[in-house]
Design a protein around this nucleic acid. Structure first.
Lengths: 188, 188
DNA sequence: TTGAGAATGTTGACTAAGCAACAAAGGAGT
DNA sequence: ACTCCTTTGTTGCTTAGTCAACATTCTCAA
């Protein structure tokens, strides 16, 4: 799908970004997004503040980057970026999104509205791109079905991750899958 | 005793040295000193080879630095660098040297002659400096007693660390201590 | 013995990171 | 209102790290 944006990058850049990312994640878990300042991140990363701004325009850009990278890692781990549409792949995608949101809610202190909608935007963009990629390969119509499915998947995952008593993920996905699949397959 | 050479140092320098140090230690444990190349170190540290030479003239200088730093850390941990001569402090010093050599023998693959004598030189320099510092503070004669004690201590520790069946460190040090102490105290 | 490959040091030109200082905007309390 | 303090972006100059290239030396097997 995508060329790996890691390799061939100046080692200093990789190092710096990793330092920023690592300290950001730990601060996120400790204090929550709203109360983390750029200062905090650079202090803990032992990076100059000016260097931060050479990489990210502000902490929102950093959040976007962090979420995107973490989510992409999950996608790549299951090789969903190197295949095309199938019910089973779709099932795995839904699964990933659910797990991802659950993880975020357990790994980030005080998730406020602001934070959640930022994450939502980033994740939906990723889902949409992946679905588009799948459908294009299968010569299926893309735009509308991918949009519908994207929102549906994210909605399901968000719902699931907010449940007080979450049912088994397997059961949940089994029930949800056909509803999403029909959106993508109906013109096959 | 010494001002901490860590603080006030350019963050990039600290980072680079730590990266080099970390990868060196792991390679030392894995392959042994003789078979570790500068290449290996810089590859694993993800540092440019030219950068290595900006910090160390060669791998021997690196070994020196690594040993010195590790040993100094033990000294500082027990605050021996902030006190003066006493039998108890001397006892702790002997203890540290013994433990240090034991650790090196278990943590480094195939310790050859070359490696051992490099370590010996570095450690003895450290011991000598510490003893001199102690004695000077107590207005005791320095040069000769410190020399004798340094060699004695290192010899004991080396002997101990090479024993096939090592007795309890406590017992060993209890026996050795008075012999070394007399060298330092006889003119008190 | 020779020759091919690997490791060593070194160089000079380029790029990223550090730093200090600045103006500006917000927040908390008095 | 006010100050005091913190955070935010931004800038110009300095220093450290990167890279590719080169000449040497080592090593080891053909």
């Amino acid at each position: 799908m995508l060329p790996n944006p890691d390799e061939k990058l100046d080692p200093r850049v990789k190092r710096t970004r990793n330092l920023i990312l690592t300290s950001f994640e730990s601060l996120l878990a400790e204090k929550g997004f709203e109360s983390v300042s750029v200062q905090d991140v650079t202090d803990q990363a032992e990076i100059n503040r000016a260097t931060f701004y050479a990489h990210f325009s502000d902490k929102y850009a950093l959040l976007d980057y962090a979420v995107q990278k973490a989510f992409m890692a999950e996608i790549e781990k299951r090789k969903l970026n190197m295949c095309s549409y199938s019910p089973d792949n779709l099932r795995n995608l839904i699964l990933i999104v659910c797990e991802f949101l659950v993880t975020i809610h357990s790994g980030c202190a005080q998730p406020h509205q602001q934070f959640e909608s930022l994450v939502e935007g980033t994740i939906k963009k990723q889902i949409f791109e992946l679905l588009s990629y799948w459908l294009k390969k299968s010569k299926l119509p893309t735009e509308i079905p991918a949009t519908v499915a994207t929102w549906a998947i994210y909605g399901l995952a968000s719902h699931y991750s907010h449940l007080k008593k979450r049912p088994s993920l397997e059961k949940f996905v089994d029930e949800a899958l056909p509803l999403v699949a029909v959106n993508l397959e109906q013109f096959a």
